[in-house]
């Protein structure tokens, strides 16, 4: 199949919703975070839900960090 279209790849082949199934909001060290459960069962932080700007400077809450 050859496609010639101004639409973006995502419009034609949308990402399957199931690929987001392992993402959830969890509480970590008193803050609400959006995290993805990885294959080994650990959680990787995707987004920190906080209004305190200092939390975003805290290494524990940096996106990509593994929650322990």
């Amino acid at each position: 199949m050859i496609l010639y279209t101004p639409l973006s790849q995502e419009d034609i082949f949308p990402t399957a919703n199931s690929s987001y199934n392992n993402r959830q909001f969890i509480s970590y060290e008193g803050r609400s975070v959006y995290a993805e459960q990885m294959e080994d069962g650990s959680y990787q932080l995707l987004q920190l839900m906080s209004t305190d700007p200092q939390d975003f400077l805290d290494e524990k809450f940096t996106p990509g960090s593994i929650l322990s």
Partner: peptide
């Protein structure tokens, strides 16, 4: 390294 700073009295939404 990430900069550290004292507690902020202004919060961000």
């Amino acid at each position: 390294n990430v900069a550290q700073a004292p507690d902020s009295n202004v919060h961000v939404l």
